[in-house]
């Protein structure tokens, strides 16, 4: 099972995860008594990168309208800042005593903290982006709920005009999201559901048109036509609910990640 939720996050964090593992190994190897080198310059580079990341993070929080992001992201930023401070402390301690065990432990703790904090930060933003996609899906669901009250061609034309841009946006964003996911089953489910929605939508419009035509002729079959229309709207709604459900799934198990 993949550890990182999306390919973008994976590309950023996997190298860090590998380096933290390597650091732990180096620490274990160094327990035979090797001195740690002067880490002032590389630690300073980490601190500078963290300062810039935190700046961008704070600016993201400021400009976002997402209350959950505003609530969750500051903690991730504090985590990264605290981790950078640990690295600085470790570097100072190792300058005084290159064999210091507490300093080495601090170094590993700091590196781990950078990994965890950056991961939290990226996930926080990623979740915010997912919430935006879900809002768009819900807008389509709201339109589908209105389908059964459309009884004239004029209303149908307006319905199609309103629904089409939303549906196009959902299609584009869910498709992009499915390509980003690392979890194969989630990816396949999103693709399958999206294909169903794309297939069903013209059929639904057609069924709504047929209902309106039959209604105009005052035929008995209008009940059947309405049933058919409602069935198709219901099917589309089910697929969208499944898309929303899968979008909210996360890839990794907390314990496995740790």
């Amino acid at each position: 099972m993949p550890v990182f939720h999306t390919k973008t996050i994976e590309s950023i964090l996997e190298p860090v995860a590998q380096q933290v593992s390597r650091l732990v190994i180096l620490h274990e190897e160094a327990e035979d008594g090797n001195a740690m080198p002067d880490l002032e310059k590389p630690v300073l580079a980490v601190s500078r990168a963290v300062v810039n990341l935190v700046k961008v993070g704070r600016s993201t929080i400021e400009s976002s309208e997402d209350s959950l992001l505003k609530q969750d992201m500051p903690a991730a930023l504090l985590r990264v800042e605290a981790a950078a401070r640990l690295l600085e402390e470790a570097s100072s301690m190792l300058k005084v005593d290159p064999y210091s065990q507490p300093a080495r432990k601090k170094l590993i703790e700091g590196a781990r903290g950078i990994l965890q904090g950056t991961s939290s930060l990226l996930l926080c933003f990623d979740e915010s982006e997912v919430r935006k996609i879900i809002r768009e899906c819900k807008t389509v669901l709201d339109y589908l709920a209105v389908a059964e009250v459309i009884e004239t061609m004029e209303d149908l034309i307006q319905f199609v005009k309103d629904l089409s841009p939303c549906l196009t946006k959902v299609s584009r964003e869910v498709d992009h999201r499915s390509q980003e996911l690392t979890h194969q089953v989630h990816r396949e489910t999103l693709t399958r559901c999206l294909d169903s929605v794309k297939t069903l939508s013209p059929i639904l419009i057609c069924s709504m048109k047929i209902f309106i035509q039959i209604l105009r002729q005052h035929c008995r079959e209008s009940d059947e036509a309405a049933e058919n229309r409602n069935y198709l709207a219901g099917r589309m709604s089910d697929e969208l609910h499944e898309i929303i459900r899968v979008l909210q799934l996360t890839t990794y198990d907390e314990d496995e990640w740790d």
């Binding site: 973008t8 590309s11 950023i12 964090l13 190298p15 860090v16 380096q19 933290v20 390597r22 650091l23 180096l26 740690m36 080198p37 880490l39 310059k41 590389p42 630690v43 580079a45 980490v46 500078r48 990168a49 963290v50 810039n52 990341l53 961008v56 993070g57 993201t60 400009s63 990264v80 690295l87 590196a111 950078i114 990994l115 950056t118 930060l121 990226l122 933003f125 982006e129 935006k132």
Partner: peptide, 29 residues
């Protein structure tokens, strides 16, 4: 929000690269 995401991803990558350099320094020396 591609620009915001791009910004965050770029700076996270820089942090990631700096950690790589740090561990690389330890290993080399």
């Amino acid at each position: 929000d591609p620009p915001a995401w791009q910004d965050l991803a770029t700076h996270s990558k820089k942090v990631s690269d700096s950690i790589k350099s740090l561990v690389g320094s330890i290993k080399d020396k």
